[in-house]
Every structure is written in structure tokens, then in C-alpha cells.
């Protein structure tokens, strides 16, 4: 069960994270302003809290799951360099070869 949860990837790319943050901030502040005015008009502060709660739920729905809009610009990694260029890698390679030899014996 726990493995199933961990296997879900919920990451966003960097631009997606920025978009998500701006989106939920805008939604919550908008709902807060509307709720403040609405609560003042009907003389019930609890109405303000309800409207803010609605903003919270909406921004959760819109920004918690990694919707495709937050994964439009994935990071472009450099292609791996050819192994021969690096000494360290070649050393590792040598070791591996040695190991292989020893195994074959």
C-alpha cells in the first residue's frame, strides 16, 4: 500500500511550481476579498469564513494534483558525455573489468 503511494509521482516542473503558487495565491486572496465584502453586507462573519473555505478547496483542487498544465516545460538535461573523456570513469571501468575477470576465474 505504502509503495503504491510512493510510486505516484506528484512533482511539477519549475515553471509549473511558479504557476501553481501564483494561482492559489490569486484564488485565495480573491475569495478572501469577496468573502469580506459579502460577510460585511449580510452582517455574518461566518459567511466570510465559508467563502474563504471555498477558495481553499478550489485552490486545492486546482493546484494539489500535478495537472498536465504544470508539466509543460520539463527540465532538459544535457546528454551524457561519452565515458572515455573522463579518467575517473575509465578507472571505474578498469575496476569493473578486473572484477569480471576475477569472476570468470
Amino acid at each position: 500500500m505504502l509503495k503504491l503511494f510512493k510510486s505516484w509521482t506528484t512533482h511539477m516542473d519549475y515553471k509549473g511550481q511558479k504557476l501553481a503558487e501564483q494561482l492559489f495565491q490569486a484564488i485565495i486572496i480573491l475569495f478572501a476579498v469577496v468573502g469580506f465584502i459579502w460577510g460585511y453586507m449580510c452582517e455574518q462573519f461566518v459567511q466570510t469564513m465559508y467563502v474563504l473555505g471555498a477558495g481553499f478547496v478550489l485552490s486545492c483542487i486546482l493546484t494539489l494534483p500535478p495537472w498536465p498544465m504544470y508539466r509543460r516545460s520539463p527540465i532538459e538535461w544535457l546528454k551524457p558525455r561519452p565515458e572515455e573523456n573522463s579518467e575517473d570513469i575509465s578507472k571505474d571501468k578498469d575496476k569493473k573489468q578486473i572484477k569480471k575477470k576475477s569472476k570468470s576465474k
Binding site: T10, H11, Q17, A20, T63, L64, P65
Partner: peptide, 8 residues
């Protein structure tokens, strides 16, 4: 902001 819980 990279994981579900951090966003929550």
C-alpha cells in the same frame, strides 16, 4: 512546491 504534501 514539488510534492503533493509540500503544496498542501
Amino acid at each position: 512546491m514539488n510534492t503533493f504534501l509540500s503544496r498542501l
